[in-house]
Nucleic acid binder design. Structure first.
Lengths: 335, 335
DNA sequence: TTGAAAGCGCTAACAA
DNA sequence: TTGTTAGCGCTTTCAA
């Protein structure tokens, strides 16, 4: 049987609470006493039992991170930010891959509640609202990252989707494009809304009328990007450029353009959000919005710790700036 | 205050142990009683406390996964395998990013012992031996994946490094190469040893003498690959081909060749282990060994669960086959 | 099928 | 600076 705090206490001729104080290092313990306790711990190969201390103190040192997928450098860069921040504070991170499936997510959230995790960092799915409200009712600290569902009492840390999209389209306009189609996510996601708005405002600001026929929305998948561009190309329009709200859609779009023998950027210029390394090999041909993935994770987690510590009262939204990487310019820009 | 099992018991007019039996569904409970308990749970919004049940039953439903890095599709594909298997059984996965740093790894292992995780899936670092032996002494079930350190009581699940390396070099020989250099990992890692052996045996089997001057070993990094190839190119040898034991080294090697204005595969053919998506964009130019990352994670975790359940007595090593993707052939192969 | 009693290993609260 | 007492919320053990 493994040694307990009581065994250590007996060997060191002190009470268990003194051993506890030595282990947790919070209270003052006489140097001699401490030395005796440490010796006993060493001799008995004692390993404190966190499950017991968690129960007694009704708190754990575990966070949960819920992500839509894990085999993807964008999400894993976020995870790395979360992990670094948690590890620095001695917290563990439970990795939960939701597959963007509300059922799977709900199953996870239920188990996290039972596990009494200290807090949750989540990229919510579209229908997460009720589940997240339930967590809040149980008093579980929560931070939404990258995406958000409204009416949930939680801080939000995310990239500037609106600004990024606006910059992309503005760049295309500066490059001489006038007929600019937009491929993006559905309006049921917060990123989908923000990016579309950024695109439209860029057009309006440049005095270009928004043509609803040039706005194509769908799931964030390669196939969707492919199909939406196919659809666009069937219309009798001469497209100057494509603004794309997501990496996977961009890859599909590039394939559709290649099939139509349209060159990038000579025939059609492209500007896209870059949220997956899969887009890397195509990047040289386009202007990209690189989102601050690591900081989203790191800052989100830092905020979560502040919540756990009971700081702050108002829930806030932190919008982090993107980095724009210019692609090749097609036209000549007059300064 | 959150409701406890006792509150539920009172409301349902039963004892707490009956509530426990309903929750865990292991023992027989009369249908009427069950219904009353369920109603009380619903009414009180009762959420079982896993920390309490863990303490009492001295077992948790948590696994730990220790990985050398997480922003990388190879490791994350392994993680996905682990996660899928664990989730299916209601277990959580603690994600531990060791950065291949023994100190950080040791810190993690210590915390996992305290947390009383049910088992550990680990990609060990070179110096993990003593730490892992300590875990075993505490009776913690352990599975090593991808790499192994010897003299640790643990199953091992890994790809066939030897066979993969042998296939790579054999392919180069079949393609007409005779002067084949090898770039690979240090012999302090198990993969480094196995891959070098596979390369050498392929040469020997083809009647080619192993030239020690053509074997260059170093860290699994882009820079190392670059420097080792630079070194090779300084020698007055006409190189036919390069067998490379690691993706990052391969990327560095490609850069060195490009600098020397050597074309791939026309001037120098390349065959490499593919263990990172970063190599993707170069893959069309070379023959690659694709390792069964998902299955390494999945099968490793399955084996861990069998250990946790107390099955098996002997520790075994499972060697999974790779998939070889042929690159362009340089010479003409006569059947 | 159900329950009573005990206790898992630790720490909060209070006391000295 | 150190100790005593009690109890966190559950499940084991034994009994009916």
């Amino acid at each position: 049987m493994a040694a307990t705090i009581k065994d250590v206490a007996e060997k060191a001729l002190v009470s268990s609470i003194t051993v506890s104080r030595v282990i947790n290092g919070r209270s003052n313990v006489h140097a001699d006493t401490r030395a005796r306790v440490l010796a006993a711990i060493e001799e008995l190969q004692y390993i404190p039992n966190d499950t017991a201390s968690n129960l007694r103190s009704s708190q754990t040192t575990m966070l949960a991170l819920l992500l839509p997928t894990i085999v993807d450098s964008f999400w894993m860069t976020i995870a790395r930010g979360v992990e670094d921040e948690a590890e620095a504070r001695g917290y563990g991170v439970l990795l939960c891959n939701t597959d963007d499936d509300t059922i799977k997510e709900a199953r996870y959230l239920e188990s996290l509640l039972r596990r009494r995790v200290a807090g949750v960092v989540i990229v919510p799915t579209t229908e997460s609202g009720p589940q997240l409200q339930r967590l809040r009712r149980q008093g579980l600290p929560l931070v939404q990252i990258h995406r958000k569902v409204s009416r949930v009492e939680a801080d939000v840390v995310r990239a500037d989707s609106y600004g990024g999209a606006r910059a992309l389209t503005t760049h295309l306009i500066d490059d001489g494009a006038r007929t600019i189609a937009y491929i993006g996510g559905l309006l049921s996601t917060s990123t989908g809304c923000d990016r579309l708005a950024g695109h439209q405002d860029a057009l309006t600001a440049a005095g270009i009328t928004v043509d609803p026929g040039l706005l194509k929305l769908g799931r964030y998948s390669e196939q969707t990007g492919y199909l939406l561009v196919k659809e666009l190309l069937r219309a009798p329009i001469r497209l100057d450029a494509l603004a794309i709200g997501n990496s996977r859609q961009a890859i599909g779009a590039l394939h559709a353009l290649a099939e139509a023998r349209l060159r990038v950027p000579e025939d059609v210029a492209i500007a896209a959000f870059h949220d997956s390394a899969d887009l890397d090999e195509y990047s040289p041909f386009m202007t990209s919005v690189i989102q601050p993935a690591y900081d989203i994770g790191r800052i989100g987690t830092r905020r979560l710790f502040e919540r756990i510590a009971g700081q702050h009262t108002r829930f806030e939204e932190f919008i982090l700036p993107n980095r724009i990487v210019m692609g090749p310019m097609r036209g000549v820009v007059l300064a």
